[in-house]
Write a protein that binds this DNA or RNA. Structure first.
Lengths: 317, 317
DNA sequence: TAAATTTGTGTAACTGATTACGTAATTAAT
DNA sequence: ATTAATTACGTAATCAGTTACACAAATTTA
């Protein structure tokens, strides 16, 4: 299919499905060629039964990697053909123990030649290929087992998004956005408080002039996140991480992490030994983020904010 | 799946299906990750429309390799979402011309990042494999296009069957089977005739003693096919190929071909220049076989058999 | 130009799987 | 000894595709 060369590998699912169809297409005819009265979809169940002794529905399902209803249905069909027999386990009345009948075993014998020929045909086909499909499938199964495609894509997305994010120092032109982003989340979850207005209306005087810093995250040039590092008059803590806000429309772009990391780096470069922050446990993503950065829960600090129900600190190593 | 390592490659269809499922599984979540309101199964149609201009249902189906009802249904669903619009072709009232709406084009734009990330994720995954799945699929598509799996299996079956066939010279103990196999087919299609009895009841006197030969095909030691090379008193022909019979239960095992080839070889080794045969056109497989061996239709020879309606000869080169 | 064939499309039924759910039997926990 | 949780498995609904069929429009043939 030329189509797939255009789409790129995104379409690997579709392409796999079509190859599967093509390979499967002939299966029924191949059974006919050998005069074997069997449906292709029975094969895994049939094969599994022909190997060991009797098995239960669930055991079969696990062995061949199908769901149990699928096996249940297949067994029902094979039962009609007289290839298998069911019997209830005496020790455990739930279990349906299935085994091949004589007729089934006869088919198992007859099918051997077919298996040999199909195997040989595929082997010969494979010999003409540079890339071994069978082995490639095995490798994919293994790698997807370790990490799903979704996870892999998420990582790529994060990488790409991060590359678009630039963290810059505060300039007066960002005062507007610094205020707006913070007002947005505070008033969504809580009420604006006296201390909020002080800092947001006058970051220059309230934060920067007192030895603090503000960083702004630009996503493709647009300011979508802010965070402040406020100088504390405290014997224990040097700075407070505060007024962190990321635009809802930039969620999932890793901006929060990059911003907070940059703030921590900033503190480190200023020789800070301990950073403090206040938050609220209903802000789960934020708390998770702080955790990821190494912040630990502490208690007992007095705070001007009523919304604060958790306090954390980061010891800079 | 360990299971597949046991079954051998016969189960490649099943195994492919399961990998397809696993790869496809995450697709819906990936769209969600990018806030794209689209079903994975729409992708091929969507992509195809996003590339060129408007297309008809059948054009789309051909482009992406689906059946047209499948495309028809998908377009119906995308229509509801407002991603596409339909319009009847004025020049050809049967054609349903489909194109992306503005909303659709917007999604096409939004989806670009996703395509990049998925491609990168798969590329990275592939880099960890020895055998390239994408390329392997391409090679299989190409090879199956040239010759289906069924054909390949048929060839392997023929090879294996042929290896089990042994062609041996006539011995008196084969007289019974020589007679029985011939009576079987003759009386199925025609009536036994005077000349038949002469040859079948006394092959020694009627065929062998007059300088003819009989070959017997053994399939796993069991005599299942016979053929005679009868010396002719004729200025043109040296021998007649006759009394060829293969047991119905050995059909499809290539016995006829091996037997007739051996007879021709025999004639050649005896220095024959031309072989003659008589048959009937209702025996299609036999006529095909003679054709394959190089026999050509001739006419005008007198014959004792009423069932003969075709005469053929082979010029030995 | 009428009749036969081909083409484009939609609808219905089927297929081989799945997930969702219900129920009975067993096992674990209090 | 109940009660709760787990397990085995069957039935029903769903899913993403297919083939089969019907029908109208266009094209080819006689």
């Amino acid at each position: 299919m030329d189509f797939f060369e255009q789409t790129g590998k995104v379409a690997i699912g579709s392409r796999l499905r079509m190859l599967t169809d093509k390979v499967t297409e002939d299966a029924a005819n191949i059974y006919q060629l050998y005069n074997i009265d069997m449906q292709p979809k029975w094969f895994p169940v049939f094969y599994s039964l022909s190997q060991g002794e009797e098995k239960t529905i669930t055991e079969l399902a696990k062995a061949i990697g199908h769901s149990h209803p699928s096996v249940s249905k297949i067994i029902g069909e094979m039962l009609k053909k007289g290839y298998v027999q069911e019997s209830r386990d005496k020790a455990d009345g739930r279990r349906n123990v299935v085994s091949l009948t004589d007729a089934g075993r006869q088919v198992a014998y007859k099918i051997k030649d077919q298996l040999i020929d199909v195997d040989a045909a595929i082997e010969e086909l494979s010999a003409q290929t540079q890339n071994k499909l069978w082995e490639a499938i095995g490798e994919w199964e293994f790698l997807l087992e370790q990490k799903t495609l979704l996870r892999r894509v998420m990582e790529k997305k994060k990488e790409r998004d991060s590359a678009k994010v630039e963290i810059v120092a505060y300039k007066p032109e960002y005062q507007e956005i610094f205020r707006a982003l913070n007002v947005e989340w505070i008033s969504t979850y809580f009420e604006m408080e006296e201390s909020d207005y002080k800092a947001l209306d006058n970051p220059q005087g309230y934060i920067l002039d007192k030895g603090g810093h503000i960083l702004v995250a630009l996503y493709e040039g647009e300011p979508l996140g802010v965070c402040a590092l406020i100088k504390m008059n405290d014997e224990e803590y040097d700075f407070e991480l505060a007024k962190m806000a990321v635009s809802p429309k930039a969620q999932g772009k890793n901006i929060g992490f990059l911003l907070a990391s940059a703030i921590v780096e900033k503190a480190k470069s200023l020789g800070a030994a301990k950073i403090y922050l206040e938050s609220n446990t209903i802000l789960k993503p934020a708390i998770n983020l702080y955790h990821k950065l190494g912040f630990k829960k502490v208690a007992g600090k007095p705070t001007p904010y009523t919304r604060c129900n958790i306090q954390m600190e980061l010891v800079i190593g």
